[in-house]
Write a protein that binds this DNA or RNA. Structure first.
Lengths: 139, 139
DNA sequence: CTTATAGTGCAACCAAGTTGCAAATATGAG
DNA sequence: CTCATATTTGCAACTTGGTTGCACTATAAG
C-alpha cells in the first residue's frame, strides 16, 4: 500500500501544510536511495511544473525537511533530513558523488570533521563532497 | 615593474603556450588574495571576451595550473595551484566561502582529512568548503 | 455560500557555462 | 621573407538550472 500518511506526518512535524504537489515531491525524494536534482524529480513526476517542484523544495529547505548538496554537477541535489535534524554544522554530513553513475549519496554517519580554521574565520555550515566511484559501480 | 616573465615561466612549466590572453588571466588570478569566478575576471579585464577567459581557464585546469572550487554560489571559482601541485586528493585543501563579502579563500594548510568511506566507495577528489564569516568581515 | 488566503501552472526571464564559426594571429617549411 | 598551416580569439547563438510575476484554482474560515 501507498500510505501517504507518513509523508503528511513528516511535513506537519516540520510545520508544512501537506499539499498534493508536496506529498509527491517528498515521496519521490524518500523513495530514492540517493540525492535528487530538480530535473531528476521532474523526470519522475512529469505532470508537475518545474516551478512547483522548485517552490516545494525551497519550502522543504526552509523548514529543514530536506538539505541540499552542491556536488559540482551544476545542479543542486536534495535529500531528506533525518528526523529532528536541525542542520547545524555538527549535524551535517559528508556526501559522495559518483563520477560513473552520477549519483550523489549521503554518508549520514560521516560528520563534518571538527576543524581549526585560521584566526578570525567562523564557519556556520559546510558542503563537503568526495568524488570517485561508488560501491555499486565498483562491482 | 610588471614583469610578465614570471607568468610565462609559470605557464611553460606546465606546458602551456603563454599567449596575451592567458598572461592577463593568470596575472589577474595571481594578484588576487581570493579565488575568482569567470565573471570576476571579466570585470577586471573587460576587454577580454567571456569565451576567451573560459578557454584559458579550462586550459589552466587541464594542466593543473589552477584548481576550481564550487562554493555553492552558482559560479565556479578559480585559484592558482602551488608549484608542482598535482591536485591529488592528498594535496587538495579546504576552502572557505564568506557569506558576508562573498569571497572564497584557499586554506592551503588545511588538507582534506583522511576519511574512511563506506565499503566499496573509492574517492579520487574532493570539494570541501566551509561557509561562514571571514576574518576580514569579522572585525 | 462568500470571501480571504495559499498553492499551482505557465511563460518569461536571468546568469553561468558552452559551442560553432570566421577573422586574426602565430608558426614553420621552403 | 613568403606562403601554407595551425592555433587562438572574438562574436553570436544556444543550453541548462534556477527564479519570478501573474493569473487561475483550490482550500479554509467565517
Amino acid at each position: 500500500m501507498d500510505c501517504k500518511q507518513i509523508y503528511e506526518d513528516k511535513m506537519e512535524s516540520r510545520g508544512i501544510k501537506p499539499t498534493a504537489v508536496r506529498v509527491l515531491v517528498l515521496k519521490t525524494l524518500m523513495s530514492a536511495d540517493n540525492a535528487m536534482s530538480m530535473t531528476d524529480i521532474e523526470n519522475v513526476l512529469p505532470t508537475l511544473e518545474k516551478s512547483s517542484v522548485f517552490r516545494a523544495l525551497n519550502l522543504f529547505l526552509e523548514h529543514k525537511l530536506v538539505h541540499s548538496i552542491d556536488d559540482g554537477t551544476g545542479a543542486l541535489k536534495y535529500a531528506v533530513c533525518s528526523d529532528n535534524c536541525e542542520c547545524t554544522l555538527e549535524k551535517e554530513h559528508i556526501h559522495f558523488y559518483c563520477n560513473k553513475c552520477g549519483k550523489t549519496f549521503c554518508f549520514i554517519g560521516l560528520h563534518i570533521p571538527v576543524t581549526v580554521l585560521p584566526k578570525g574565520f567562523v564557519s556556520s555550515s559546510a558542503n563537503f563532497v568526495f568524488k570517485g566511484v561508488c560501491s555499486n559501480c565498483n562491482k
